[in-house]
Every structure is written in structure tokens, then in C-alpha cells.
Design a protein around this nucleic acid. Structure first.
Lengths: 142, 142
DNA sequence: TTAGAGATGTAATGTTATTACATCAATTGC
DNA sequence: GCAATTGATGTAATAACATTACATCTCTAA
């Protein structure tokens, strides 16, 4: 089984981690996830990191590099352009509110293309692109 | 003294850290910098982090979020659009070769605008934007 | 039924970043 | 001059994030 387009069957640990992230309504660090899952038998960081690796590979979870934290993917399945990253989209971008910690996930074709064009012009072969906007969301900026 | 447009006078520690990054021809972690500067009297991480904070604030150094590492800014002074981030540019983007660790710093008006437009449409007020493309540079992809 | 692959559990360690507290030097206002 | 403030520095300790190493275990395909 490789690079499934639809959600694959998850292992127990993967399902627990994914569920925790879905309930969270915001990004969580690996160690926060670990704490949430202690009641379910989790005892070591590696259990979380292994599950996160897989979920990320499946495109079901994203890592926020500027936060060292993780969020469940907010895209609906089959939405918009199928990309190299499985699950149904190309590069995703994030707007992260530094006040309320809310994260907006979005996709922007033009940005995607523009960066792709730059890469092509330089002979650079992208494997993963990170776009994160830190700032204040509408509510918090008011 | 606040938010200088030209390079401010650096303190001894700031100058040492900046110099180390300039010589490096590639990103360095804070602890790598620390090791390089032990001969110059550095003994603790905080000495490095404090200098990096200031240099970043001055726009002379960038943090690569996906690497937890730092690079000296590759822009010439006075080049292109003066932005909110001092030093003479708006958002910068990075292409990071995962094979040879070379980093290309660039600026793309269209991407900048496009993300700005998205933010405006959502009422989001950006403070800092991260754009990092991981992949293989032309040489390493060949 | 056994060899391989993948998932799991656990401990230990490595790497990155911050908090807390003390000191020192330059500047400002009196 | 000389407090008072501000900013830079030094040091130790700790917190936060992530990986390596090794031992099982379970399923499945030959």
C-alpha cells in the first residue's frame, strides 16, 4: 500500500492522535498530544511522533513549522487541485493568529504557480513548501 | 533608538554572531554558532539567542523555521521594495537544498501581493510571513 | 512455519529554546 | 556629582521538542 488518495485505514495509535487533533480546534504540540492520550495508554513521545509522521504522509495532518505544532487538515476531500502531496491539494498555506491561536488553512493557486515558476526558472526541484502567515485574525485585530 | 533603516552599530556579541553567520555560507543552528564562538568567550546559549533576536529584528539575519537555523540576510541594502521588516525588503522566501544545504534567498512581488490580498480579504493582519521551499537545487537534482 | 515487513513499547539521549537571577556599563535627570 | 533607569551581559538551571537504539509483537506471503 503506498500513497493512498483516500484516507487509509489507520492504526490504533494513528486514529487516537488524529482524533485528538480533530477535537482540538487548534494546533497542538507533540507533547500536548502525548498528555491528552496518557489515559489511552500513551507513555512515550515516540508513539506520538510515529503516528504524526504517518498522518502527515497521508496528508491528514500538517506540521506548522513556525510553531513546532500540528493541526488536522482542514480541507474537505476531493476539493480542488490534486497535488503531489496526496489527499487532494497542492501546497497549503496557513494564517496563524498570535492572539487566539486560531489557524486558517487555505490554498492559493496563484501563489502556488508563482513559486513553481520561480523554482522552474532556477532549476530547483521542490519537495515540500511551507507558507505560514503569523499575525492577528479579524476578531483579534479589532 | 528604534527600528533603524540602516545597519545599526552592533554590540560585541551581535557582531561576533553576525560575522560567524556571514562566514558560514549556509544556515547554522544557535548551538553550532555557540560552538564556533567558544574561543571568543561565548559560554551559554542565551548569548547567541540574544544576539540572534536583535539581528533578526534589524533584518540582518533570518530564521529558517523548517530548519531551526539561521542565515545572514543575502539582500544588498537598498534593493527593491522597502517593507515593514526594515532593512529594505518585504517578505523574503527561501529555497533550501536538502542535499547540499545551500539556501537561496529571494523576493517575489507577486507572491507577496497575492498573500497580502488574501489577508486583506479575510481581515487578517500579518506580522511575519514565512515562505520556505525544501527540495533539491539545480546541481543536486541533476 | 517461517521469513519479512510494519507497528508497538520503553528507555535513554540529543537538540533547541527559555526562565530566573545577578552584574555591569552608559545615559538621563536632578 | 549621583541616584535612577535602561540595555547589554554572564551564568545556571530548566523546559520544550525530537530522535536513536533496541526489544517485541502481529500479520501475511512464500
Amino acid at each position: 500500500m503506498n500513497a493512498p488518495i483516500v484516507s487509509p485505514a489507520l492504526t490504533k495509535n494513528q486514529a487516537l492522535v488524529f482524533d485528538a487533533l480533530n477535537r482540538a480546534e487548534g494546533p497542538m504540540s507533540a507533547y500536548t498530544i502525548l498528555d491528552k492520550l496518557r489515559d489511552h495508554g500513551f507513555r512515550a513521545p515516540l508513539q506520538v511522533y510515529r503516528a504524526l509522521d504517518k498522518l502527515t504522509e497521508f496528508g491528514m495532518v500538517h506540521r506548522l513549522e513556525s510553531l513546532n505544532a500540528f493541526v488536522a487538515c482542514a480541507h474537505r476531500e476531493h476539493e480542488c487541485c490534486g497535488g503531489a502531496q496526496g489527499h487532494g491539494h497542492g501546497t497549503v498555506a496557513f494564517a496563524i493568529c498570535e492572539s487566539c491561536n486560531q489557524v486558517m488553512e487555505f490554498h492559493d493557486h496563484k501563489v502556488d504557480h508563482q513559486l513553481g515558476d520561480w523554482a522552474k526558472s532556477k532549476g530547483f526541484k521542490p519537495s515540500k513548501t511551507t507558507i505560514e502567515i503569523r499575525g492577528l485574525c479579524e476578531k483579534c485585530a479589532a
